[in-house]
């Protein structure tokens, strides 16, 4: 069971994934946090959560990753978590047009419920299903450009670009926090700072290079 007090970290970031049902949000998180992919998926009820500790530029980041149910029905619940997120990953499925069409709807949700200046990236998932592709890379990129957000095409199954996408988002948040412009829960809170001072236990993350996903998950 996870114990914060066993871990040392410099920052605590809260991320949230949203997007239509069955676009692969949970799989992306599993790939990133636990480096695993299960073929027997399970749909997310309401809201789910994973922790991930990893390192960027010698900074240990503790990530709280919120996974949300895709069905509109649960928006009232998930909206509560938009407000807390410093970074949001919006996911669509490159093999299903309607999930792409709904990206604008999700962006509106973020605008409505998210904090101002929240960092967003767009992910087109399931590039392993190239033969079933309905949305071209160009289309995805164009939409991202329109909203001035970064874009990645990923495969949670084949482990393509997943770490890169999460790292990019974490980098953006870190840059913002370090420039003093963001709420960093890791240092803004007395509790968390106190934890920081007392924690010495090295984690696998400290051995990794380039701050990517080899950090120990605390789940």
């Amino acid at each position: 069971m996870a114990r914060a007090t066993d871990k040392k970290y410099d920052h605590l970031f809260q991320l949230l994934l949203c997007g239509d049902s069955s676009v692969g949000k949970t799989c992306l998180i599993s790939r990133f946090a636990d480096n695993e992919f299960r073929h027997t998926h399970i749909n997310t009820i309401g809201i789910d959560f994973k922790l991930k500790l990893f390192t960027i530029r010698d900074k240990k980041i503790r990530m709280q990753i919120w996974d949300t149910a895709g069905q509109e029905r649960y928006e009232t619940l998930t909206a509560q978590y938009y407000r807390k997120a410093q970074g949001i990953i919006l996911v669509y499925d490159i093999t299903r047009e309607e999930t792409f069409r709904n990206v604008t709807k999700w962006l509106r949700n973020i605008e409505d419920h998210g904090v101002k200046g929240v960092k967003i990236i767009l992910i087109g998932n399931k590039v392993d299903l190239e033969s079933e592709r309905k949305i071209s890379t160009r289309h995805g990129q164009k939409l991202a450009n329109q909203h001035n957000i970064k874009f990645f095409e990923t495969s949670a199954w084949k482990d393509i670009n997943v770490t890169e996408a999460f790292t990019e988002l974490a980098e953006q948040i870190l840059a913002k926090v370090e420039s003093g412009g963001g709420r960093d829960r890791g240092s803004s809170s007395i509790r968390e700072s106190a934890i920081k001072l007392h924690e010495q236990q090295p984690t696998p993350a400290t051995k990794s290079h380039g701050g990517c996903c080899s950090g120990g998950s605390s789940n």
């Binding site: 069971m1 914060a4 789940n219």
Partner: peptide, 19 residues
């Protein structure tokens, strides 16, 4: 007690409940 004794924080509590 399993959550309070080790002074779990927000993330730990949710991780514990999930676990």
């Amino acid at each position: 007690n399993n959550m309070m004794d080790p002074k779990f924080d927000f993330s730990d509590i949710i991780a514990h409940i999930n676990g």
